[in-house]
Computed example of a mutant assay.
Amino acid sequence: MQMKKLLAKTMIAASIAGSALAVQAQEVTLKIHHFLSPTTFIQVGVFEPWCAKLGKESGNKIKCQIYPAMQLGGTPPQLFDQAKDGVADIVWTVPGYAAGRFPLSQVFELPFTMTNAEATSRAAWEFVQTYAKQEFKDVHLLAAHVHGPGYMFTTKKQMNTMADFKGMKFRAPTPLTNKMLAMLGATPVGMPVPAIPEALSKGVIEGAVIPYQVAPSLKVHELVKFATETDPKYPALYTTFFVVAMNKAKYDSLPADLKKVIDNNSGIEFSAMAGRVQEADDAPGRQKFKEAGVTINTIPAAELAKWKKATDSLDDDWMANATKLGHDGPKLYKAAQDLIKKHTK
């Protein structure tokens, strides 16, 4: 009898221990990697609240460890492959840093396309899901979004007309923006955003196109004399397309309940939130420039119409390239434009 009781107790203890291990096995810590500082919108405004939501909805089974400023190594253009290869579980990156690799989704980076970041981010997610899924087949895509209107920040000369671009060395984030600047008369210099401060301070570039929100973290307000905006009623000069991508094997390894939590917090609403938060950060960013005494001016719609005419052929080039790749370029271009209109209020 004693032996039976002892055996029963042992089996119960083993069962409890096994249950505890099973619960523990369902807990997951996601390594999130991005290229900006820990005080910027992507960490404070997007990933931290997103991770808190994942934790709450999973009963604290999902946790995050965020690695800002490329702390896991590599360079910003390598982030997508870090998600693909499992160096990080989740990354936030600019697909356009890898020239020619994501041609379809870059339709949102064409000049004078974006209306506002939230609407265009919703459009970007829908477009990718409908027309460009193949570009992201190597990862589990969580979000696709854009930033607010990109403006011009210059060290020596205020921008007023298209003629002011002539010969100026201007930083651009992606190939399409490089081409746009060249068409406007500038000498484009492509580089990821973290390289801007050193390039400005050393005179490698005389100007940069970026949104207000990221500028203070790069100390751009301390390095330039002029900030040039565009008429807010006119489509933005440019924007940049971003993705939040997850390692496929990591996602596939999750139990069904945790996959559901991830699924419920990704997609069009996560994309819209990222765009909305990023653009909302423009106002405090702009204030930093005012406080620093930077001269701020606005290019009127009539002048912007000339810039648009000068860069219109970029749309044709994009459509021709998409067609060359086996797609209906004009159809995809119209789809992107229609999706932006659909979501713009």
Rank of each mutant, 00 (worst) to 15 (best):
T155L: 08
A302G: 02
D312V: 06
P232V: 01
Q2V: 14
S217K: 09
F47V: 07
K331L: 11
G59D: 06
L218H: 05
F241K: 00
D338S: 12
V243R: 01
G59F: 02
N178Q: 13
L79I: 02
P95Y: 07
L7V: 14
S105M: 13
D282A: 12
Q158P: 10
M168A: 10
V220K: 01
V23R: 15
Y131G: 00
V128A: 11
S271Y: 04
A25K: 13
V224Q: 03
T323C: 08
L304N: 04
L54H: 02
A52F: 08
F80Q: 01
Q78H: 07
L21V: 15
T154N: 04
K156A: 11
M3T: 14
P95G: 05
M162K: 13
I210A: 00
K341G: 11
Q213V: 08
S313F: 10
Y151G: 09
M11P: 11
Q158S: 14
P284K: 11
M273A: 15
M180P: 06
H147G: 13
G326I: 06
G45C: 06
I32W: 06
L200W: 02
M1Q: 14
D252E: 15
P197K: 12
T40D: 04
E27W: 05
S253M: 03
P103Q: 04
T115K: 13
L72Y: 02
F127M: 07
H327G: 06
K4A: 14
Q71G: 03
V209K: 06
K137P: 07
I340L: 10
V146N: 04
A256K: 15
A143D: 04
S37A: 10
E269V: 13
L36K: 09
A320D: 11
P232C: 04
P330T: 07
M180S: 10
A215H: 06
I12W: 11
S121L: 03
E118G: 01
M273Y: 14
Q287K: 15
E291A: 15
W92D: 08
P149V: 10
T177W: 01
M180K: 08
N60H: 12
T177V: 15
V243M: 05
G86H: 13
E222M: 12
A274K: 00
L79N: 09
A336M: 11
M246C: 10
V107F: 06
T29G: 05
K324T: 13
N116R: 02
W92M: 05
E269Q: 15
Y333S: 10
L36R: 09
K345W: 01
